[in-house]
């Protein structure tokens, strides 16, 4: 008996040691990967403080000789960056709200309701994701123009607020929520609308947070759409504005880096503020098999 206890303790000690080694290894790998991920950003920061011809100097200087902090002021002066920010914020916020609402609405139907043609219609949705935007861009453009939306911020809203992607994402998440919950609610007399409004949200917070992040980021970083539809300077967005720093006959890479870093801020704020929804592990929430 004494022998068994000793062996038991030994095993536990060995296990604890193994666990420690495993943990340390894990952290080492994670930190290594994180550094690898961050290198380009360090380069961006360092470039944003240089002069344009220094940015691509062959032997990389991580810390610039002279820190040109004025670059961060220059970007607001050289192009109307504030206007661009306002436009981009408007589009991003409106699209995110519209997309989240309509997508979760539609996704509920696909995930929890039975109706004729459900699967065919859903396949239809997914297939449009498959067509590259360059392919149907023209008919879309002609349509937008004839409706009078050309060169308006609402054009961007119309293009992005009703995407199939949001529906797809939410539908997958909703599929994980047990149908019994919905059944029970139905028996209790709750209408479908009620179920959507009362039962689903608490259980899909992580999902909604995900959709918000992705929609916001996607809209914020969209380049092709604003480039084609927004011509007046007063309407342009940040990504398009950044390109003004690279023209065929001159380039201001240092300013592009500075402006890119600044434009990262709002997105980071959104991301960080939604993090708490990922930490709350509700026992039967979110996705399930």
């Amino acid at each position: 008996m004494a022998q068994a206890t000793v062996t038991g303790k030994q095993i536990r000690k060995d296990n604890a040691a193994m666990q420690l080694v495993g943990n340390v290894l894990l952290y080492v790998v994670l930190i290594g990967l994180a550094i690898f991920t961050l290198i380009p950003f360090v380069w961006m920061i360092s470039s944003s403080l240089k002069l344009d011809q220094e940015v691509f100097q062959y032997s990389i200087r991580w810390i610039p000789e002279v820190c040109h902090w004025e670059n961060y002021q220059l970007i607001w002066e050289k192009v109307p960056l504030l206007t661009y920010f306002k436009n981009t914020a408007f589009i991003a916020i409106v699209v995110t709200i519209l997309q989240t609402l309509t997508s979760s609405f539609a996704a509920y139907a696909f995930a929890k309701l039975h109706f004729k043609g459900r699967d065919v219609l859903f396949l239809c949705y997914i297939s449009t994701i498959a067509v590259p935007w360059q392919a149907y861009m023209l008919p879309q453009f002609i349509m937008m123009r004839s409706v009078g939306l050309y060169d308006t911020l609402w054009a961007m809203v119309a293009l992005q607020a009703f995407s199939a992607f949001g529906v797809f994402l939410m539908r997958q998440f909703y599929q994980g929520i047990p149908t019994d919950l919905c059944e029970a609610a139905r028996i209790d007399g709750l209408s479908e609308y009620g179920i959507w409004a009362r039962i689903m949200p608490p259980l899909s917070k992580a999902a909604i947070a995900t959709l918000v992040i992705f929609t916001f980021v996607g809209t914020w970083n969209d380049y092709m759409g604003p480039m084609i539809y927004l011509t007046q300077d007063a309407n342009k967005t940040v990504q398009v504005g950044l390109r003004r720093f690279i023209q065929e006959y001159s380039s201001d890479y240092h300013l592009i880096m500075a402006a890119s870093l600044v434009s990262l801020l709002p997105v980071s704020i959104v991301f960080l503020s939604l993090q708490k929804y990922f930490i709350e592990g509700i026992a039967t929430s979110g996705l399930k098999g």
Binding site: Q53, Y58, Y249, S250
Partner: peptide, 16 residues
């Protein structure tokens, strides 16, 4: 290859 990879603009090259 160096010029291409670094996207070096000719004005930058000459003006260094």
């Amino acid at each position: 290859t160096e010029v291409k990879a670094a996207n070096l603009h000719y004005s930058g090259a000459f003006q260094t």
